[in-house]
Amino acid sequence: MKRWLETRKLARKGEIRSVGKFSLMVRRFCRNKAAVASLVFILLLILIAVFADVLTPYDYDAQNLSEKLRQPSAAHWFGTDDFGRDILTRVFVGTRVSLLVSILAVGISTVFALVIGSIAGYFGGAVDNVIMRITDIFMALPGMLFAMTVSAALGTGIWNTAIALGFTSIAPIVRQVRASILLLKDQEFIEASKAFGSGNTVIIVRHVIPNAFAPLIVQIALRLGDTIMAISGLSFLGLGVQPPTPEWGNMVSVGKDYMSEFLPLILFPGIFVILTMLAFNLLGDGMRDAMDPRMKR
């Protein structure tokens, strides 16, 4: 611990170039301009999500029916929607909703998958077999269909959508976690821990899970992007988040009916969806490239 602190102090002073695994990864990541740009964009989105109320002068549900469907102007930078509400505000607040549901969904699936996958990978044998067969069954269901069924059963709204999407994406992550665990299990430091006499739970929590985390982070980034797209898809189909809560998917759904005469209603939320997806994809790729020393860009 002390050693580590000393190294960091020297690194900060510029005297040595730290060669810790983590700093190497960060340096590789920074070389990837696209990935850095994506990270910046995502941080920007998070800021928007958190400070949306402050950034926008209007309420997201402040209606002004006689002002509906106005083109972008000084008063309304993105124009107004079919209720006279400010589109800019709704897109910004929609960021909050989309990100929130996405994080919740991925969070739910990751936590469950981590636990289940670790158990399967670590204990092996019959437990592993049973868990993998059940995972196979879940993987045989097409994702959208499963999400729709669960969503229809649970109902609409932020929480229900997050649960539905989270639940339906547990299976693939379980596979991933289990694969990492299997690779790790035979490593020496696990054997050393066992030799020390540490119990199984301690080993799982202290050693296995943190080491399985690295490839998982990449998965999480990619999944966040996919989930935002899935939320939009669900909202488009009439499930997912419902108006008046602003969400990019349901704004696009409403906007498509006005597409021929009034573009802003579909244009702005649509652009945000595409950019966010791009950002998460590039970020995920960048992190994967950074973590894998063999991949040169």
Partner: peptide, 10 residues
């Protein structure tokens, strides 16, 4: 990457 980022309904 762009193709992968466009939502299908759009």
């Amino acid at each position: 990457i762009l193709c992968g980022a466009i939502p299908p309904f759009v």
